[in-house]
């Protein structure tokens, strides 16, 4: 589903991604861990071209995309993204947020979009919040709306950039539950997260990044219990 070859990215002089190679198969759930500054978020943002890598290739569903392409919005339609800080549109209601892409990008008639919107809100358990503005929601509810908004576009893959790190601890569970359901439905997912429980339960593979490189990867249980690399060991030791 995703194939990345020798991806390199610099912010000015800072080399943040170094020869990253990665394959994500269809229906696979890949969890990316690593210290802050390790490049994990940047990697995710390069996949839907919110950041542009200077070198390397990105194939999505077999098609290579050039970051200079004028059709980036078409690629982004197929790649859903959930952000750490939700980034809901504060000037639109919950339903308005969910159907924004359907009416504006897919140009669906409003009635049809509303129908799909209701289904999606039910899926994330927020049917009763359709008409309120995001300011009235808890962090966990906001993130669930953000997931519904991304799902509305029927993406082929979902990217989650630290979806639970801005949440109060008691709200993390409801968001992870929605993500778990999604994984069980067979969604291809790439998740930057340190939620070990989630990784072990639904993750197919965990990738450890350090200083812009993928240092180690493996099955969640193996990587967490028995990391091979020194840096992975010390990172996991600090995490626990």
């Amino acid at each position: 589903m995703i194939k990345i070859r020798e991806l390199n990215k610099w912010f000015g002089d800072l080399h943040v991604l170094k020869d990253v190679d990665l394959d994500v198969a269809e229906k696979e759930v890949v969890v990316v861990i690593g210290a802050s500054g390790s490049g994990k978020s940047t990697l995710l943002r390069c996949i839907n071209f919110l950041e542009f890598a200077q070198k390397g290739q990105i194939f999505i569903d077999g098609k290579e995309t050039d970051s200079r392409s004028k059709k980036l919005h078409l690629v982004r339609m197929e790649v859903g993204m959930v952000f750490q800080h939700f980034n809901l549109f504060p000037h639109r209601t919950v339903m308005g947020n969910v159907i924004e892409g359907l009416t504006q990008v897919k140009k669906l008639p409003r009635e049809q979009a509303l129908g799909q919107g209701r289904e999606l809100l039910e899926k994330v358990g927020l049917s009763d919040k359709a008409d309120v503005y995001p300011a009235m929601l808890s962090g966990g509810q906001k993130q669930r709306v953000a997931i519904a908004r991304a799902l509305a576009m029927k993406p082929k893959i979902m990217l989650f950039d630290e979806p639970t790190s801005a949440l109060d601890p008691e709200l993390v569970g409801e968001v992870l539950q929605v993500m778990k359901n999604l994984a069980l439905e067979g969604m291809t997912m790439m998740v930057v997260s340190h939620e070990m429980g989630f990784a072990r339960e639904v993750g197919d593979r965990v990738i450890y990044m350090d200083e812009g490189r993928i240092i180690e990867e493996g099955l969640p249980d193996e990587l967490y219990k028995n990391p091979q690399h020194e840096r992975t060991k010390s990172f996991l030791a600090r995490l626990l």
């Binding site: 993204m81 549109f89 990008v105």
Partner: peptide, 16 residues
């Protein structure tokens, strides 16, 4: 910045 990014990630063009 995240507002624009969220809009782009839905497949909107920069103008949209």
């Amino acid at each position: 910045r995240g507002q624009r990014e969220a809009a782009l990630s839905l497949g909107m063009t920069p103008t949209q």
